[in-house]
Design a protein around this nucleic acid. Structure first.
Lengths: 218, 218
DNA sequence: TAGATTGTTAATCGATTAACAATC
DNA sequence: TAGATTGTTAATCGATTAACAATC
C-alpha cells in the first residue's frame, strides 16, 4: 500500500476502449507513420477526439508532442503494459461444455496475458482429455494443485445452477478473481473480484435499442 | 413516433441488471410467497435497496403496495415484456467456428426471444450442415433470403480481420442490429445498432482490478 | 512565426444515492 | 394505529464534454 504502487485510475468505459485502440494501432500503418494524433484515432474509430486525448494521456508513460501527436510504438507498449498483456496470469476454466471448449480453443487469450492451464469438469468422458494443449481434470485435483500453481483467475462456463457452488469452491481454493459466463449474479466476499460476461445482459441492451428503433419506424 | 410508442428509458446498468432479477425471481419461492420487497431482492443479490426499488418502479406496469411489496408473478411478466422475451426476433450468426458453434448450441436464447434461423460460413465442409437445428448456408444465399425472412439481428462470430466486411454486408442486406463478438470496433452508420460483446474489454477490467488488488497485498 | 495538437482546468451532464411524504 | 415499504423529489457524486493556455 505504499505510494509507488498506486495505479492510475481511468473510467471503466475508457478502460474497455483500450483494447480497441491497441488493435487499431497494430494494424494501421505502424511502419508508415511514426506518430499519430488523438484526432486521427478518433476519426478512425468513430470516437470523440477529446475522449481519445484523455485516454491516451492517462495510459501514456511519456508526453505527447504538441502539433505532432504520440509515438505509435510507445503507445502500443504503454497500452499493453497498462492492460497487463506483458505479464501472464494463470487461469482455470470450469465447465468444459460448448462455450468452455470454445474458450479453450481461442488463441487470443495468451496475447492478453491470460493463460488457461487447466480445464475442470466432472464428466468422466472429458477428464484426462487435452483440448488445445490444456488438460481437463477434476475439481478435487484442481483444489489439491491450486496452492502451488499461482492460479489467480477462475473462468466459470458452467450452467447457472452450479455456478455459485463452483464460485465458492474456487474462492476457497484461493482464486482471487472470477470471470463469470454463467447467467447469474454471483454473490461473493468483497475481497474477490467478479467480472461478468453475461449474454442476457448484453442482449437486453440490444433488444431495448432495437425496440426503440422499430417503434420509431412504424 | 406517436406518443404511445414512447419506451421508458432506464440507465444501461439497470437494464443489464434486469435479467438477474428475472432469474432470481423465477428460482425463488415463487410459489411460497406472493409478494416480494425491493429490500429482499437487494439482500439476495447483494445490491442496494434503493437501486432495486428504482428499477422495479421503472419496469413494473402496476404499483407496488407499501408495506407489502411487488407481486412476484406480475414482476416476472413485466420484466419479460420489458426485455422483449415475449416476442421472438430472428437472427443470423456469421462465422461458425468454435464460438459460433457454441452459441448455436446454446439453448437459452429462445427464452430471451432470440431465434437464430441460419448460420453463415464460407467453409464448404460446413455448408449444408445442421447444428442444433440450424442450417449453415453461404453469405450469398443469406442475402437472397434476407428480405423475406424478417431478420433483424446479425451475430458476428468471425475473426477480426473480416468482421467489418461482414458487418457492412449484413447492413446492406437490411439487418438492423449487430451483436458483435469480434474484438474490433465496428464502424457503422448511426441508424444501425451495434452491441459489443468483447472479451478483451471485459478482461481489461478484470486484469486492472486484479493488478490493484495484488499490488495492495504486497 | 503560425497553426496544430497537447494536457489540464472548468462546466455540463447524467446517474446514483439520500431523504421523505404517502399509504397499505 | 404503528411500522414497513413504496414512489418521487432533492442532493451528491462521477464521468463526459468544453474551453484554453502551453508548446512543438
Amino acid at each position: 500500500m505504499n505510494q509507488n504502487n498506486q495505479l492510475k485510475v481511468i473510467s471503466q468505459s475508457s478502460l474497455k476502449g483500450l483494447p480497441f485502440y491497441l488493435n487499431h494501432l497494430k494494424k494501421e500503418n505502424l511502419l508508415k507513420h511514426e506518430f499519430i494524433s488523438a484526432a486521427q484515432i478518433a476519426k478512425d474509430l468513430n470516437l470523440s477526439e477529446i475522449q481519445v486525448k484523455k485516454d491516451l494521456a492517462s495510459v501514456a508513460s511519456f508526453k505527447g508532442k504538441p502539433n505532432v501527436g504520440h509515438k505509435v510504438v510507445n503507445l502500443i507498449n504503454d497500452i499493453e503494459t497498462f492492460l497487463g498483456y506483458r505479464n501472464t496470469t494463470n487461469a482455470v476454466l470450469v465447465g468444459v461444455g460448448h462455450l468452455g471448449k470454445a474458450l479453450l480453443n481461442y488463441q487470443g487469450f495468451e496475447e492478453y496475458g491470460l493463460k488457461i492451464i487447466f480445464g475442470v469438469d466432472n464428466n468422466t468422458n472429458l477428464i484426462g482429455k487435452i483440448i488445445n494443449g490444456v488438460e481437463v481434470i477434476t475439481m478435487d485435483k484442481l483444489i489439491a494443485l491450486c496452492p502451488r500453481m499461482h492460479i489467480n483467475i477462475g473462468i466459470i462456463t458452467i450452467g447457472k445452477e452450479d455456478a455459485q457452488d463452483v464460485c465458492n469452491t474456487l474462492v476457497k481454493a484461493g482464486i482471487k478473481a472470477i470471470w463469470n459466463f454463467a447467467p447469474v449474479k454471483l454473490v461473493v466476499d468483497d475481497s474477490v473480484i467478479v467480472q461478468n460476461e453475461n449474454m442476457a445482459s448484453s442482449l437486453a441492451v440490444l433488444s431495448r435499442h432495437l425496440m426503440r428503433k422499430i417503434g420509431k419506424e412504424e
